[in-house]
Design a protein around this nucleic acid. Structure first.
Lengths: 251, 251
DNA sequence: TTCTGGCATATTGTATACCAGTCATGAACA
DNA sequence: TGTTCATGACTGGTATACAATATGCCAGAA
């Protein structure tokens, strides 16, 4: 098997990347056309949704996904399904065992704690960036969103893994305007969403969480960089500690 | 196209992992045979190495990879090459343009800064964890590794993107014993390594970098959590600022 | 009845054939 | 001489066929 000898030279291809060259015309910015997002991408989205929505922590039985059945159900061939699976595997959602099957991954308690810790790292950096770069309007939007949540009757459901809670933290990350932070965190949040159903909703923690959020917003508004970072970090690490102590249903 | 209807039931599969059950016999513990890592994985490794090693920032010409040629060179079919490509694409190393080709991705200046910022977030959290969890021996190993580097004649090459420099930071992340942090950072570091050749080696920054490293080690040794975190963070963010100011060769 | 060995089956890994756009080329024409 | 446009080679996307291997079943012997 002769390896190597790639193609580092460019083969003619004169015009560099015409696809990315935007015409400088004064057109009303028409959308990039309804480009069909390829079967592979559609399969990826559908599979990810399906996996996220299933309550995988309810039972301890292994959950296996059948390539051929999925391909049949989607009405496509195995190839795009396999490519979607490969991506989901690299993102930590499924695990492929050769000649055995593809199984949905259940995170261990340790892994969940590690993910929350990583999230703490990313979001605390985001908070820092917000105090330095975000506009007052953006931060005000954060407060508005939050108070809407709290005033509504959603308060009762504001446990750590609820959609509204995660959305709040997701907004903080996004306000950093750092695409890398956002992407990395997005994957972590998706994993979080999968655990939510099993969470023990403790009234105390919910109240504490709301107070934390308020303090975070205030620190951001006053541009207190170090304090904002610290509050965000400790809020997340507090959840990690809580999981470490009480989330015995994992494992 | 009827979607959905996965296979959440587990298909028998009674004994969970019989492969790990060791026979209690007095046999010479024969190894589980050399299992060959799938062509897909081998192609992935080979491709990644090839991409990382090529000096992609030397020229501005697009670098295109040809599926068919690569498959031919590797002596395998297109399928595993494609699957490897898909993974590399999700990791941000290549970009696939339908009906056009697969191109090696060149990071923009903004993206590099964002990556360094994310790295700062991860490593500063790692530093925090080290002060709380790592053993004295582990931290001592860090100092030993570093002094070996500095004492040697490697000092001249200790610019921010050099292998030894990156290895130092990699070691810090690893000492956190947090697999999620480690994985996320690993990808960022790999991207870093690709930029190194174009770096302007400034003597001042190299010296500053060494001093920073020493301070970081001392903070870790004295278990100064907040200080270690701050030093690590500022060290990385300093590089980000440096790139923002001087790395005009990007873009 | 219990255990062993071989075969049938199931499932993923890999190879190959086909399809649908894209782009360079060059002939035809003004 | 410059422009247009048809054509064909080329490329990634998709479908399908084939190969390799793990697992379960069953017949037959002890």
């Amino acid at each position: 098997m002769n390896t190597r000898d790639l193609t580092p030279r460019r083969p003619s291809l004169r015009g560099r990347a015409p696809a990315t060259v935007r015409a400088p015309l004064a057109q009303p910015a028409l959308e990039p056309i309804a480009t069909t997002p390829s079967f592979k991408h559609k399969a990826y989205t559908a599979l990810k949704n399906a996996i996220v929505q299933m309550d995988i922590y309810r039972s301890r039985d292994d959950i296996r996904l059948d390539e051929r059945k999925l391909a049949q159900d989607f009405g496509i061939s195995r190839t795009p399904v396999r490519e979607a699976m490969a991506q989901l595997e690299s993102e930590g959602f499924v695990r492929s065992v050769p000649r055995r099957g593809i199984y949905v991954v259940r995170k261990t308690k340790r892994e969940v704690i590690e993910m929350i810790t990583a999230w703490a790292a990313l979001e605390s950096m985001a908070a820092r960036l917000i105090t330095q770069n975000a506009t007052d309007e953006e931060i005000a939007g954060l407060r508005k969103m939050f108070t809407t949540f709290v005033d509504g009757r959603l308060r009762a459901h504001l446990d750590e893994y609820s959609d509204v809670n995660i959305e709040f933290h997701q907004s903080i990350i996004k306000l950093s305007h750092n695409a890398v932070l956002t992407d990395l965190a997005e994957n972590l949040f998706t994993h979080m969403r999968m655990i939510r159903r099993k969470t023990i909703v403790e009234k105390d923690r919910a109240d504490r969480s709301i107070r934390d959020h308020m303090n975070i917003i205030e620190a951001l508004e006053s541009r207190a960089t170090d304090r904002a970072e610290e509050l965000v970090r400790d809020h997340a690490l507090g959840l990690a500690a809580h999981v470490a102590e009480f989330a015995d249903y994992l494992d």
